[in-house]
Design a protein around this nucleic acid. Sequence first.
RNA 1: GGGCAGGUGGCAGAGUGGUCAAUUGCACCUGACUGUAAAUCAGGCGCCCUUGCGGCUACGGGGGUUCGAAUCCCUCCCUGCCCA
Length: 374
Amino acid sequence: MFKVSQKDQKTKARTGMIHAAHGEVHTPVFLPIGTKGAIKAIAAEELKFWGAEMILANTYHLWQRPGDALIAKAGGLHGFMNWKGAIFTDSGGFQVFSLGKVVKITDAGVRFRSEVDGSLRELTPELSVQIQANLGSDIALVLDEFPGFPATKKQAEQSVARTTQWAKRALAEHQRLGKNQQLWGIVQGSTYADLRRQSAEEIGELGFEGYCIGGVAVGEPAEEMYKAIEYAQPYLEEEKPKHLLGVGTPEQIVQAVGLGCDSFDCVIPTREARHGKFYVNLKPQDGDGYTTINIDNEKFKEDFAPVDDTCNCYGCLNYTKAYIRHLFASQEPLGIRLATMHNLRFYLNLMQRIRDMIENGSFAKFLKKYRSVA
RNA sequence: GGGCAGGUGGCAGAGUGGUCAAUUGCACCUGACUGUAAAUCAGGCGCCCUUGCGGCUACGGGGGUUCGAAUCCCUCCCUGCCCA
């Protein structure tokens, strides 16, 4: 169930609450990604302490290892990984896209070559729902399929048609299982206005508890992504939550909130952290926005100031850039951990700010000035 | 004192007459990363020049052979191992 609490007057932004089986989620929300049932380098309790309310885990990877049967035995993914909040599971649809040539896609489903034992496995819309039921996530997604960018009209049409067919099958299987779990549909349609609309209408008619806008952030310019949201958003029930899959940079998230998106998930804060990139707020005199730094840059060798002196993360409160740079240069795992903590807090703090500003009416102004500075 | 091996770019270590400014690894510098096959990947890494099938200086020092040498010869210096 989803309830809108405050609508912004000048944009489509709104705050709201997703009532999930394992907790309430304040939106707009960012979901840290824990593909294999772990936010890389971070413990579940830490995330909870920082205010994260929902995380994303991946059906495909957990199916492969350790297997959904084992996780069901452990009492579900929540118990298995000791995460006390809500869990959102991707259906494996993204792997159809990202694993590219090692898969064969038919109307029936997707054939994968297992990375674990090399065996051939087939993921179908029904099986994906069954696996997610075993994982026990709060929000499950339908299996979808989508092309990269650019996509021909024909490819986009096929993606929309197949995603709708698979959504129907997933929904039927979900109803058959009758679990206390939400199932959300996914809108495709690439960069085509008519196809985005058609997909939104087809998926919307099926009556899911929430919707995802998918097939974005696949290499298209940000403007194309914003347009894709605008093409679909008006045709999805307003009182249902809308998730923008796989997005994005802080700037893109702010923009998408303004276009009516309620939730986001992205590997950027965690992956880039492992690669030494830190998100840093601009100094007040430089305007409202952020920049990024590569901590391994030589210029930080003797920089004994914290990464961001306005940040309340553990690393910024206790360590200097020079030290963290040294940790990366020395391949000390602590460096990765501090970076991941920092970036996740940057994202979570940003979302808190967004919610506050929607509540107090200052979001539109913020949206206008918030920017990324190279 | 005698025997043997060897001295190549920050380090390690290829190359043994031309296509070598010199394979490769490490280190170093820079960049990328968007529903995570990612603690990964890409580029750079003698000097000059915006550039180029560009110029210059280079493979311990010096000299020589050759159209041409990191590669062959002579000599000097140095290092390691073995026998006295």
